[in-house]
Design a protein around this nucleic acid. Structure first.
Length: 598
DNA sequence: ACTCTATGCGCC
DNA sequence: AAAGGGCGCATAGAGT
């Protein structure tokens, strides 16, 4: 069952069963929508709507979770860019109301032909993707709260038409099975993004305040700097013999440093570290405290922590590679020194897990590089590379791998890359080809079909200027330089983008398993601050590229840990079938995030 | 008073 | 310690 959700005029919402007639099966007010959705959810439909952010928050407020959806905005963005839909898009152009995605060009551009020799993928058609991504879910108790959806005004007929267009584009793409999985995973991501915000990350304000007081000193009066910062600032000023230098001003500080005989080009930490001077140590300490104060100080606490929860706005699919972004709160940059404030509710636990060396493992699968996958058998991929005799020690293995994925050409990392290339030619050839495509201005595509943006008009202008007969050698140098920059981006894109797909599949599979656990469990201790949809079920509370946190009743923690591990295995199978690449996790059951530094 | 860019630094 | 892709955010300072 597939149900389109859209407006019907007069502030009403229409639900259309896409497998039946175009006549709405229900037309309701915004307030009546949650009970209508709850009723229909028992048929396990796929909800089709313009934007999950418009519809789902009010449902969660009413205690209703949905199992699956199709987010037309996110899926449209993928389809509008994917190299696998180029022909299909011409026959089925997007409607004007659908907003552009993060990586889509605004105007018409002519793509450069890529060397798309996509290795034969695992046969996605054999999989019932819908089955794999959604299992079972019945949570939420009755609630009479009035929903206040601020839904984008997309008429239900337009929603239905756009859904059919997208399905048609998928069907006519060169890789419909992979694309179907990607769109299903991206749409679950949309649901999870809203759910993470609704549930919130458990946050102990008192612990955070203790960290601030230990590091910075007592909370200062408005307009004053914390005592520890003032003390360090005085030390720096004395050592520099610059009594009035403003350490917060890059220009002012740079001038004072040079006057004191410290010849630096910037005031960055990495450069300062290289110099011997009594001012350096207190200056670096000052900078660290200044960062803590401005990024996660008392003001941040007041703005972002309420009811013992941190509720950032996640932006699924917010970056070109498909990695998520956040808007506000800096959820993806939580510094390690405040993670001690992430504390489970009484009677609850945190299951913290991250995928060990995700990107090189994904690369092994992408390239179907058996030798590289073999090195990844077991927990420590880098150790495996050493054991295979490719490099002498673990550090070298790490830098060689990073160099291969990011395009290092200089330094120790750059020197080690050729040894990696000899040992793992298939993996190396894949990233090298992605880089070469990028340098030519071609787009590259992730495992499931997300494509990179085209380089900017300015980039193309630089390249075409360098190819003119009257081009100077400076023009040519510049063109080569920006071409290589873009090549490093596309080299990394295929790995980072595919790793983001693995992470989405991991979370999607986990979400299903958690729902299944919740359906059979009786929960005594409620996490009330998590809201009606989550207070009695284990639920995701954090996501950071290759790491997740589940907040769970303590009695279910072991079951949840098992589910997290199984979901990782499942994600590997979804993406790479029987190809023997493993995705081991570092996983811990803890009371505080700070205790899970693995 | 507002917007914009550069810088620096936190995370993966 | 090495080298480099993706981000967001706070701040300073310049421009409007």
């Amino acid at each position: 069952m597939q149900i389109a959700v859209g407006t019907a005029g007069q502030g009403r919402v229409a639900l259309v069963d896409l497998d039946a007639s175009d006549q709405p099966i229900a037309t309701v007010s915004i307030a009546e929508l949650p009970p209508a959705v709850r009723e229909l959810e028992s048929h396990r439909p796929r909800w089709v709507w313009g934007d999950t952010r418009d519809w789902y928050p009010s449902l969660l407020d009413a205690g209703i979770r949905v199992e699956r959806c199709h987010d037309l905005r996110l899926c449209g963005a993928i389809l509008g860019q994917s190299s696998t839909t180029e022909a299909a898009r011409v026959a089925h152009p997007r409607p004007a109301w659908l907003p552009l995605g993060p990586s889509e060009p605004g105007g018409a551009v002519t793509p450069v032909e890529a060397s798309v020799d996509r290795t034969p993928l695992f046969d996605f058609e054999e999989f019932d993707v819908l089955q794999a991504i959604g299992v079972e879910e019945r949570t939420g108790e009755a609630s009479d709260r009035v929903a206040s959806a601020d839904a984008a005004a997309v008429p239900v007929a337009a929603v239905a038409a756009e859904y059919r267009r997208q399905l048609e584009v998928v069907a006519q793409s060169t890789s419909p099975g992979a694309l179907r999985l990607l769109l299903a995973a991206e749409s679950v991501g949309a649901l999870i993004g809203v759910e993470l915000h609704a549930a919130g990350l458990p946050w102990d304000r008192a612990v955070h305040e203790r960290v601030l007081e230990t590091e910075l000193g007592p909370k200062p009066k408005p307009g004053w700097k914390p005592a520890h910062m003032e003390r360090l600032a005085a030390e720096v000023r004395a050592a520099l013999e610059a009594p009035s230098v403003n350490l917060d001003s890059q220009v002012d500080l740079l001038r004072a440093l040079r006057r004191a005989g410290i010849h630096v080009a910037s005031t960055g930490r990495w450069e300062l570290k290289e110099h011997e001077h009594p001012a350096i140590e207190p200056l670096l300490a000052y900078k660290k405290l200044a960062r803590l104060l401005s990024a996660n100080g008392w003001a941040w606490l007041d703005e972002w922590i309420a009811d013992g929860r941190f509720r950032p706005d996640y932006v699924p699919g917010g970056t070109a590679t498909g990695r998520w972004a956040t808007a506000g709160g800096g959820a993806l940059q939580l510094p390690k020194n405040v993670r001690s404030a992430v504390v489970a509710d009484p009677g609850w636990k945190l299951v913290v897990a991250d995928a060990a060396q995700l990107e090189p493992r994904v690369l092994a699968g992408l390239a179907r590089d058996e030798a590289m996958a073999e090195a990844g058998r077991g927990k420590d991929f880098y150790r495996g590379i050493v054991d295979a005799g490719v490099v002498e020690n673990r550090e070298q293995a790490k830098y060689a791998i990073l160099g291969a994925m990011y395009g290092a050409t200089t330094g120790e990392s750059g020197r080690l890359v050729p040894r990696l290339a000899r040992a793992y030619p298939r993996a190396m050839a894949l990233v090298d080809r992605a880089a070469a495509d990028g340098e030519r201005g071609a787009i590259v595509t992730s495992h499931l079909g997300r494509s990179s943006p085209l380089p900017s008009a300015e980039w193309r202008e630089v390249q075409s200027r360098a190819s003119q007969p009257e081009a100077t050698s400076a023009d040519e140098r510049r063109a080569r330089s920006v071409a290589r920059d873009w090549g490093r981006f596309t080299r990394n894109f295929v790995v980072q983008g595919s790793a983001a797909e693995w992470a989405l599949c991991w979370m999607a599979a986990l979400r299903s398993r958690l729902a299944a656990i919740a359906a059979t469990a009786v929960v005594d201790e409620l996490a009330r601050a998590s809201g009606p949809a989550f207070e009695r079920a284990p639920h995701l509370v954090y996501f950071l590229h290759d790491e997740i946190i589940v907040h769970t009743p303590a009695v279910l923690a072991e079951q949840v840990a098992e589910a997290v591990t199984e979901a990782a295995r499942g994600a590997g199978k979804l993406l790479f079938g029987e190809f023997p690449v493993e995705f081991p996790l570092d996983l811990e059951v803890v009371d505080s995030y700070a205790l899970a530094e693995g």
